[in-house]
Simulated scan of single mutants.
Amino acid sequence: MLESTVKNFCINFNVASEGRTFRSGQLVSGHVSFDLSKKTKITDISMRLKGQAHIHWSTGGGKKRRKRNYSANVTYFDLKSVILQENSAIGESVKLQAGTHMYPFTCQIPQGDFPPSFKGVCGKIEYMLTVSIHRPWHMSKDFVTELNLINSINTNQPELRAPLSGSNQMTLCCLWCASPAITMTVSVEKKAFTPGETVKIICEFSNGSSRTATPKVKLLQKQTFYTHERVNRRVYDKNLASGFGQPIHAQTCDVHTEMMVLIPQSASLTISNCSILVVSYSIEVSVTVCSGPDLTVLFPIIVCDTPVHPQPPPYV
């Protein structure tokens, strides 16, 4: 069997990149190495570089509802090349001696606006490098390595660097009586952040009611999966991080406070350039009161791979 003949197979990259991270248009080079336990005939060693998105989910099932499956695929590129080939002139397989063998390879990720790598609830975007060893009269043996592709955005866009602000208010009612309003004004220093970065939220509250109000903040991720032409969709909301501020006592005005929320290092990048899979983020700031609805302000944000510096305050 090939498994017992080929041992210690490894794909080594020349670029010392943490997590095998690459970008669109980047050259991927390195070498493959493996040990043969005995003299072996090889038809060829081929390489395939493929990028694709795939989504799938099911609904229904059981006695009363027929199960329905939804799926879609998008292929961004599918490149094939040969690392080692048989002697085509005489049609003979290459005979490799027992021992260690090493072969260099080079390929290039196409230039394009490809979405970043992602694994979600109902789908994924993946970029795979597959090396296949073919032998006469044998099934090929595939060795698959996953590449982490990231896409960069133009961080000089003014809307990414500009601060975000919003406000809201509500009045609590009891029978025919209405208390003075609870108001909130919230600001975030910019719109774009990187994984591992802390978001600072500056808040101003006034609590004219007779109840204590508690501010809180959430980092929300939304995963949306579509079939082709976006005829059907499935949405998953996820709370990635949360925090609380100091309680705002009744009949208190002009309370200034700050809250922090950390974007997890493992957070995927925002995905808006895939036709069947979208990943978006938002910061939700709210005030909770006993026996009353939440007062909420929502800020859509971008999670990207390049640090974005906030817009400097205007010169006075």
Rank of each mutant, 00 (worst) to 15 (best):
D78P: 03
R65C: 08
A53L: 02
Q52R: 08
K80A: 08
T59G: 06
A72R: 00
R68I: 13
K64C: 13
Y70V: 09
K64V: 13
Y76R: 04
Y76M: 00
R68D: 07
A53H: 01
I55W: 02
G60V: 07
V74P: 01
Q52F: 15
R68Y: 13
K64N: 10
K80C: 09
W57T: 04
R66Q: 09
R48M: 08
S81A: 14
T75D: 14
S58F: 03
R65D: 07
G60P: 06
K80F: 11
R48Y: 03
H54T: 06
G62P: 05
Y76S: 01
R48N: 13
L79G: 05
Y76A: 01
M47A: 15
H56N: 12
N73E: 10
H54E: 10
S58P: 04
W57R: 01
R65Y: 14
H54C: 08
K63M: 06
R66N: 12
K64I: 07
H56A: 12
K63I: 05
L79V: 09
G60H: 06
G62N: 07
K64P: 01
R65M: 12
S71G: 11
T75N: 15
G60Q: 04
D44F: 15
K67R: 12
F77L: 04
Y76G: 00
F77W: 11
H54Y: 14
A53P: 00
I45A: 01
H56D: 03
S81K: 06
L49C: 03
N69H: 10
S46M: 05
G60R: 03
A72H: 00
K50P: 03
S58E: 09
A72Y: 03
S81I: 07
S46Y: 02
K67M: 14
I55L: 00
R66M: 15
I45V: 13
A72S: 09
D78Y: 08
K50C: 04
D78T: 04
R68F: 10
L79C: 05
T59Y: 01
K50W: 05
V74L: 08
Y76Q: 03
N69I: 14
G51I: 02
S71W: 13
K80P: 03
L49H: 03
G60M: 09
H54S: 11
K67E: 14
Y76N: 01
N69Q: 13
L79E: 10
S58A: 11
M47K: 04
G61Y: 05
